[in-house]
Design a protein around this nucleic acid. Structure first.
Length: 570
RNA sequence: CGGGGUGUAGCGCAGCCCGGUUAGCGCGCUUCGUUCGGGACGAAGAGGUCGGGGGUUCGAAUCCCCCCACCCCGACCA
């Protein structure tokens, strides 16, 4: 491809509304342009990468027996009503105004619709059906360029099996295929066991990439590979335990002291001897949560422990319930359920609020003052309620956890029979008995692979593609397009390399050398070849490896061989 | 949906607070010439509903009201 006629609108300056590296580089390299919030056009060079990623996915899906479909994005609303997901998706689902249609955010419904009409016997299974297709989701806040859009490409796959054992097999195949896909794409990723949430089902794994642009917070142990969403992540922590002597309870006047930090400062004590109180309303009843020091309550964990609706108490409610404002609330005298974080188990000599404004209580012994839970008396329960923090112990080994944000690239689910039952996709077994088909569902965000790759492979000059995803293998630069020898040599090299099966981007523009070099670094093809007057006289050209920056001269006669050899490792 | 911010030429920005020439600057673009190994130089040009609507005023990019779009933080999120 010749750059003089190829549409690659590179940008020297950073567009003002992009803040995430991959977004900036995709815009600057002319891969994408924004049309609206969360809506992007792929330009020719960007679309080449889309096709490379898609092809890798396709090959690995085909390798496990997947069959590629192409389903409509426009779906009759009726079928979404059948599974109750018009409600479940709520505002995320795009509705068509002049017809009873929706724009599909995923395709369990349509795939199951096809399965129920044809997969009628145990002999018809297993099936692995997939597609690479545009999904529509009315994200409340699109961001980070292509990482979270309202319209995006997804490879989604669905499996149909006769049993949960067979589903395990299909799930295992996808797990392997996904690892291969991300490996081939050159991504550093990790796998998180996740709760399956609104998708329903019995098990799932998320494939994630560490990134500041990420939207999920995960806890990760680099030594044993433990990884979990911070919503559910556990950790080992040093339990301080009891002091030998329990002081008796005493009240302290603490005027204007609200936060734990202020309390520690005022009383010259460590935050570890403070018990912070948070009041939640659970189905109309107040629940006091006690955390050590400044530990934060993980509301997901709390929601799992408390049944039903959980919300924070409003300021007015707090004073009505406890007699004090936030900052002076504590367990002593609190009427209602009290749950303390495990870190506080049986601790003594703690300091907490007095349920009286501007007063705290010291010398609290949880074991003595708040007996284990029993009906009718003030009592306490213990549970893991903390938000895991970096540096805490891994629950599975002796290393420390790292907590960071990450981007979800792929997700695999054991769906079970939720959709087959809702849509009446049943089959007959050997005995002629009817059962719902057992399903799995598996997704990969195509643009996210691109964005994450760029997040992980760039420098201050631009993108660093490796061969598998690069739009072109070679970026050929003719330095002076007015010099006959340079032009004719470059043309010949261009044709020779193409003839040898390489994808070549030929910068034949009449532009200054520095301009071309910078564009080449920005676009980031693995190999750059420079044809200049000086070296062409000696039948040589210069080659640059984008990744390492190393440059060296190559005899023209050896060029094709050299390129071939180098590309194997790029 | 809450909080903050931005909207002026293709891109990046100044001007706005304190209303008053013909709305500027850099990059890019066009033409000619020179140049040609890390975003060249000179000369001459083209390009603007100042996001939209309404209002105040003799006069609005500038002040007021409404709307829209986009970005960031939060809420939300298979």
């Amino acid at each position: 491809m010749k750059l003089s006629t190829y549409f690659v609108p590179t940008l020297k300056e950073v567009p003002s509304d992009a803040t995430v590296t991959s977004h900036i580089l995709m815009l600057r390299s002319g891969m994408i342009r924004m049309v609206g919030a969360g809506i992007y056009s792929f330009l020719p060079i960007g679309y080449r990468v889309v096709r490379k990623v898609s092809q890798i996915i396709r090959e690995e899906m085909d390798a496990i027996g997947g069959q590629e479909f192409h389903l409509p994005a426009l779906n009759p609303k009726e079928i979404w009503e059948e599974t109750g997901r018009v409600n479940a998706f709520g505002d995320i689902l795009f509705h068509i105004k002049n017809r009873e249609y929706v724009l599909a955010p995923t395709h369990e419904e349509i795939m199951t619709f096809h399965a129920r009409n044809v997969v009628k016997s145990y002999k018809d299974m297993p099936q692995i059906w997939y597609q690479i297709q545009t999904k529509f989701r009315n994200e409340p806040r699109p961001r980070s360029g292509v990482i979270r859009g309202r319209q995006f490409l997804m490879k989604d796959a669905y499996t149909f099996d006769v049993s949960y054992e067979a589903l395990d097999t299909a799930y295992g195949l996808h797990d392997k295929a996904y690892r291969k896909i991300f490996d081939r794409c050159g991504l550093k990723y990790f796998v998180v066991g996740a709760s399956s949430g609104a998708m329903g089902g019995t098990g799932s794994e998320e494939f994630m990439v560490k990134s500041e642009a990420g939207e999920d917070t995960v806890a990760y142990c680099s030594s044993c590979g433990y990884a979990a969403n911070a919503e559910v992540a556990a950790s080992k922590v040093d339990v301080i335990g009891r002091e030998k002597e329990s002081k008796s309870v005493y009240e302290i006047s603490t005027p204007n002291v609200k936060s734990i930090d202020e309390l520690c400062e005022f009383l010259k004590i460590d935050e570890s001897v403070c018990a912070k109180s948070r009041v939640y309303i659970n189905e109309g009843k107040a629940v006091l949560i006690l955390m050590q020091g400044n530990d934060e309550v993980n509301e997901s964990k709390l929601t799992k422990i408390l049944e039903g609706n959980v919300r924070s108490g409003h300021p007015e409610e707090l004073s009505a319930i406890t007699g004090a404002d936030a900052g002076s609330i504590g367990p002593i005298g609190f009427k209602g359920r009290i749950i303390a974080d495990l870190k506080l188990k049986d601790r003594n000599n703690l300091c907490s609020g007095a349920n009286k404004n501007d007063f705290h209580i010291g010398g609290i012994d949880l074991k003595r003052d708040l007996p284990d839970r029993q009906a009718g008396v003030p009592s306490i329960e213990y549970a893991d309620l903390r938000i895991v923090q970096s540096g805490e112990g891994c629950p599975n080994c002796d290393s420390k956890l790292e907590v960071f944000t990450a981007i979800e690239l792929g997700h695999i689910f054991k769906l079970g029979t939720k959709y087959s039952e809702a849509l009446k996709a049943f089959y007959l077994d050997e005995k002629g008995e009817e059962h719902p088909i057992v399903m799995g569902s598996y997704g990969i965000g195509v643009e996210r692979i691109m964005a994450c790759y760029i997040e992980q492979n760039h420098d201050d000059k631009g993108i660093i593609w490796h061969k598998a995803l690069a739009p072109f293998d070679i970026h050929l630069i003719a330095l002076n397009m007015k010099n006959e020898t340079v032009v004719s040599s470059a043309e010949k090299i261009y044709n020779d390399l193409k003839g040898a099966g390489h994808e070549v981007l030929f910068d034949d523009r009449d532009a200054a050398a520095g301009f071309k070099f910078n564009d080449a670094d920005l676009l980031g093809m693995p190999i750059q070849i420079v044809i200049g007057e000086r070296k062409i006289k000696d039948n040589k050209c210069e080659m640059k490896i984008r990744k390492t920056g190393e440059r060296f001269d190559v005899e023209l006669s050896e060029l094709v061989e050299k390129v071939k050899a180098l590309l194997k490792n790029l």
